[in-house]
Design a protein around this nucleic acid. Structure first.
Length: 789
DNA sequence: GCGCCCCTCATACCC
DNA sequence: ACGGGTATGAGGGGCGCG
C-alpha cells in the first residue's frame, strides 16, 4: 500500500549487523506513523593515488576480504573531486557502524590517496542518497507490520522501496508542547544531585495548561506527572527555551538520581545528546527556541522575557523575578503563588515564541535537509554545508574531508570615509545580494577554481581583479548551481506573497520559506571563507571580495559621472543625494556596465555622520530614526548613555537644535547625579567570550563574573554578565559588581556621567564643536574628583 | 610617583 | 562552531620629568 507522510524525525538501529532506518512521520490522515526501511546500505569512497589504477586498489581489498566480512560491495565509480573527474572506489558496508573502522584501515592501503565521506552518518546518508527531506511530504510503498517494539504511533510500516518526495508545502497539524522548569537551591546554581525540580509548567498548542508542583522538596511526583503528561498528549514537537543546555540535562540527571525513567519519547528510550549538542527525543522534534533567538540581533540580552517582549508575545501583565530571588519565592508560602504564575508565564512565552518561530524552523529544516531538531543547533556553516552536500551528491561531486588549516587572512570589503556632518535627502543604494550574484556571474566555486599552474581550459576563464584568481566559465560550479536556484526560488515566492493574506497559513509558510532561503544565500560567502569548511578554498572567498571592491569602486565612478557625489559607502552600498532621475540613470548604467542590480534601499530625509566609519544616524521620511553602529544600539553601554544619545540624535535631526540637545544632556546629568534615573539603566552587560581562567587581562565584566561564580553561580562561554560600577578606590575591575548584588547607594554615579553619558552625547555633539565641558552642568563641572578615584 | 603615549586585549558592531 | 573591516575603552608598560 502507498503511505503519504510528512517527515518529523529519523534515526537508525542496527540489529545483527542489519541496519534499519526509522522514519517518524505524520500521514495525510493525521496518524502518527513509523516507517522502517531495511533496504539501504552505507558506504565510503577511496581515491587512488596518481598513477595507481583503481582496479589495483579493488583487488587489494578483495584479497583481504576476510578482514572485512561486512563489506558487501566494492566498485569503481566515476565522480568529480573539486571539479576534476576521478575514478573512485565505492566500498559498501552492511553494518553502518563499521564504516569508520573499515575506512580507517583501508585508507592505509598502498595506492590509496584519500578516504572520503566515511564521516557522514548513516541516517544523513540515507536521506541524501534517496532525496528524502525532513519537514517535507513523501510517498512510500510499504506494508503495515505489527508494532512489536511498542512504539507510540498509530501505524508501523515496512518500506518496500525508498520514499519519494512530493511537492506539497503545507505541513500537517502538529501537536506542540512547551515547558519550563523552576529548580530550587538555597544558594547558587541548582545541582541535580541534590536540588529538586520544584515546578514544571507545560502548555500545548491545543490550549492545555498544567503545572506540576513539588510538595516541599520532593520532586518525584513532579517529574512523573510531567512524563505522564507528555505521553498522554503525545507531542510531535517539544519546545522550550535553553532546554538543550539546561532543562534536559538537568531533568535527565535528576530523574536518574531519583530512579525514574525519563521516557518522554515515542520509542521507550531516554533523551540523549546528539550531534551539535542538541538533545534528541526519538520520534519527536525537540526544538530549543534559544537557538533561533540568536538571529534576533536587536535583542541584546537574550533572556526568555526579552525575546518574548521583542516578538510581541509577552502580554500586558508581566511578572519579573530575578534568578537570585527564586529561592525566596519558593520558600515563602505567601510569595509562592507568584512564583507559580511566573513559571506559567514563562511557558506561555515559550508557546508565543514557538508560534512566531516554528514556521521558519520547519522551512529551514526542509531547505537545508537537516532534521528539525538538528537544524536549529547546527551553526550557520554546517547548515550551508549540508545544503551543499545534497547538491554535490546530485552532480556527482565528492564531499571533501574536514581538515585543519592555518589561518591566512585575505582582504575584504571597502568602507569609505564618511563626510562628517548632516546631509539632507540622501539615498542609500544597495547592490542586491552582491556576493551571491558575483559568485554566480563569475562562476566562483571550489570546483571551478583553476590553480596558477594549470593551463587555460577551452571554455575560458574569468580572472578576478587585483588578486588574479582564475575560474573556469564552464560547467556551472557548485556555488553557482546552488545560489542561482535559491535566488530563483526566492524571486518566485516574493510576488506570490503579495497576492496572499498575511494572516493565511500559506502566507506564513511561504514567508518563512523565503526567509530561510535568504539566510542560506547570504551565508554562502561566509561559508566559502570559513577555515572549517569542507570546501574551503581561500581564493574563492578572496576573489569574491575582490570583485566586490571592483563593483563598489565602479559604482562610485559611475555615480560621479552622473554628477552624484558619494558621501559614504560600505561593502555593497553607496550614499548619494536623492535625485530620482539621476539615481534611475545610475542604476541602469551600473546594470549595463557591471551586470549587477543596484537600487535605493532607503531614503534619509537627513543623515548624520561623525568622522567614524560604520556609525551614523538617519532620519527616515516617517519620522523614525535609523541608528547604525552608535552606542544607542550597542549592548555593552549602560541604558543611561544609550537613551541620552538617542535623544540627542532626535533633537538634532528633527529639531536641528544642538543647543537644545546640550540643555537636555545637562538636565539629564543633574538627574543622574541626583540618582533619579532607574537603577536598571545603570547596568552594563558584557558577554563572556572565553572561560574565566583564559582571560589575559583584568576586566570589569570578568571580575563581576568571578564574584558570581564564587557565590555558586554557574557561568559559561556566551553568557552575559550584568554589572554596575560602585564607588571607591581602585581600577574599574575592582569596582565592578554584579547588578543583583549591589545597591543604588553604592553606585559611582560619576562614572556613569563621565564615562557613559558624556562620551555618548559628545560623540554626536562634537560635530558642532561642542565638547564635554559644555554638556556638564556648570556648578559641578569638575573632572578631578573622578580622575583621582 | 604621576601624566602621557602607545600598544594589546576585549567586545560588539557593519555589511 | 560563517567572512573581513572598524570603533572604542580599559589595562598596563615605558618614558620623561627635578
Amino acid at each position: 500500500m502507498k503511505v503519504t507522510f510528512w517527515l518529523l524525525d529519523v534515526n537508525y538501529e542496527v540489529v545483527n549487523h542489519q541496519p534499519e532506518i526509522w522514519i517518524w512521520g505524520i500521514d495525510d490522515e493525521d496518524r502518527r506513523v513509523l516507517i522502517l526501511d531495511r533496504g539501504f546500505l552505507g558506504y565510503f569512497y577511496l581515491i587512488p593515488r596518481e598513477g595507481v589504477s583503481p582496479q589495483e586498489v579493488v583487488e587489494q581489498i578483495l584479497s583481504r576480504r576476510r578482514d572485512f566480512p561486512l563489506i558487501s560491495k566494492v566498485e569503481v565509480v566515476d565522480r568529480r573531486f573539486f571539479g576534476r573527474p576521478v575514478k573512485a572506489i565505492k566500498v559498501t558496508c552492511r553494518d553502518p557502524n563499521l564504516i569508520q573502522r573499515y575506512a580507517q584501515k583501508l585508507r592505509k592501503l598502498k595506492g590509496v590517496r584519500a578516504c572520503l565521506e566515511e564521516d557522514i552518518r548513516y541516517s544523513m546518508r540515507y536521506l541524501i542518497d534517496n532525496d528524502v527531506v525532513p519537514c517535507s511530504w513523501h510517498e512510500v510503498e510499504a506494508e503495515e507490520i505489527a508494532n512489536r517494539w511498542g512504539v507510540q504511533v498509530d501505524r508501523v510500516y515496512l518500506a518496500k522501496s525508498p520514499p519519494r518526495k512530493i511537492e506539497r508545502i503545507q505541513p500537517p497539524t502538529l501537536r506542540v508542547l512547551g515547558f519550563s522548569t523552576i529548580r530550587y537551591s538555597e544558594r547558587g546554581a541548582p545541582k541535580p544531585e541534590r536540588n529538586p525540580v520544584v515546578v514544571i509548567s507545560v502548555a500545548t498548542n491545543t490550549g492545555l495548561e498544567k503545572q506540576f508542583v513539588a510538595s516541599n522538596s520532593d520532586d518525584r511526583a513532579v517529574i512523573r506527572s510531567f512524563i505522564e503528561f507528555v505521553r498522554e498528549f503525545d507531542p510531535d514537537v517539544i519546545v522550550g527555551y535553553g532546554t538543550n543546555q539546561h532543562e534536559w540535562p538537568y531533568l535527565t540527571q535528576r530523574a536518574k538520581r531519583l530512579g525514574i525513567r525519563l521516557s518522554v519519547d515515542r520509542a521507550n528510550t531516554e533523551p540523549h545528546t546528539s550531534v551539535y549538542g542538541h538533545v534528541s527525543i526519538t520520534g519527536r522534534a525537540n526544538v530549543d527556541l534559544f537557538d533561533y533567538a540568536e538571529d534576533l540581533t536587536e535583542v541584546k540580552v537574550k533572556t526568555l522575557e526579552n525575546v518574548a517582549e521583542f516578538l510581541g508575545v509577552a502580554g500586558k501583565e508581566r511578572i519579573h523575578i530575578e534568578e537570585i530571588d527564586l529561592p525566596n519565592y519558593w520558600k515563602d508560602p505567601e510569595k509562592r503563588p507568584r512564583l507559580l504564575e511566573f513559571s506559567m508565564q514563562n511557558t506561555r512565552y515559550i508557546m508565543g515564541i514557538a508560534k512566531a518561530m516554528l514556521d521558519f524552523a520547519i522551512q529551514l529544516s526542509s531547505l537545508v535537509g537537516l532534521p528539525l531538531d538538528h537544524v536549529g543547533t547546527a551553526a550557520v556553516g554546517f547548515r550551508v554545508e549540508w545544503f551543499l552536500i545534497r547538491e554535490a551528491h546530485r552532480i556527482g561531486e565528492l564531499v571533501p574531508a574536514r581538515t585543519p588549516r592555518p589561518y591566512i587572512p585575505y582582504t575584504g570589503a571597502i568602507v569609505l570615509k564618511p563626510e562628517p556632518g548632516i546631509h539632507e535627502n540622501i539615498a542609500v543604494l544597495d547592490f542586491k545580494s552582491l556576493y551571491p550574484n558575483i559568485m554566480i556571474a563569475h562562476n566562483i566555486s571550489p570546483d571551478t577554481y583553476l590553480p596558477p599552474d594549470e593551463p587555460t581550459p577551452p571554455c575560458g576563464v574569468d580572472v578576478a581583479p587585483e588578486v588574479g584568481h582564475r575560474f573556469r566559465k564552464e560547467p556551472p560550479g557548485l556555488y553557482k548551481a546552488v545560489l542561482s536556484r535559491l535566488i530563483a526560488v526566492r524571486d518566485e515566492i516574493r510576488p506570490r506573497l503579495k497576492e496572499l493574506d498575511p494572516e493565511s497559513a500559506e502566507y506564513r509558510i511561504l514567508d518563512a520559506r523565503q526567509k530561510a532561503i535568504k539566510v542560506i544565500t547570504n551565508a554562502t560567502y561566509g561559508y566559502a571563507g570559513w577555515l572549517g569548511a569542507r570546501w574551503y578554498v581561500k581564493s574563492v572567498a578572496e576573489a569574491t571580495t575582490a570583485w566586490g571592491r571592483h563593483a563598489i569602486m565602479n559604482a562610485i565612478k559611475l555615480a560621479e559621472e552622473e554628477g552624484l557625489d558619494v558621501i559614504y559607502g560600505d561593502t555593497d552600498s553607496i550614499f548619494i543625494r536623492y535625485d530620482p532621475e539621476k539615481v534611475e540613470r545610475l542604476s541602469r548604467r551600473i546594470r549595463e556596465v557591471l551586470g549587477l542590480e543596484i537600487k535605493p534601499d532607503k531614503i534619509y530625509t537627513r543623515v548624520l555622520f561623525t568622522e567614524a566609519k560604520k556609525r551614523y544616524c538617519g532620519l527616515l521620511p516617517d519620522g523614525r530614526l535609523d541608528v547604525v553602529g552608535l552606542e544607542v544600539i550597542r549592548g555593552d553601554w549602560a541604558a543611561v548613555a544609550k537613551n541620552v544619545q538617542e535623544r540627542v540624535l532626535e533633537i538634532i535631526l528633527k529639531e536641528g537644535s544642538p543647543e537644545k540637545a546640550v540643555e537636555f544632556v545637562r538636565r539629564f546629568i543633574s538627574d543622574l547625579r541626583g540618582r533619579k534615573v532607574p537603577y536598571r539603566d545603570l547596568i552594563i552587560w558584557k558577554t563572556l567570550t572565553k572561560p574565566i581562567s583564559k582571560y589575559a587581562v583584568r576586566a570589569p565584566h570578568v571580575a563581576a563574573a568571578r564574584t558570581l561564580m564564587e557565590k555558586g553561580w554557574e557561568l559559561s562561554i556566551g553568557d552575559k554578565v550584568g554589572y554596575v560600577i560602585v564607588a571607591g578606590p581602585g581600577k574599574l575591575y575592582e569596582r565592578a559588581k554584579p547588578y543583583m548584588l549591589a545597591s543604588y547607594d553604592e553606585v559611582d554615579v560619576e562614572y556613569y556621567v563621565q564615562r557613559q553619558v558624556v562620551p555618548a552625547a559628545v560623540r554626536i555633539l562634537s560635530i558642532f564643536n561642542i565638547d564635554e565641558k559644555e554638556v556638564l552642568p556648570p556648578a559641578v563641572a569638575d573632572l578631578s574628583r573622578f580622575v583621582k578615584s
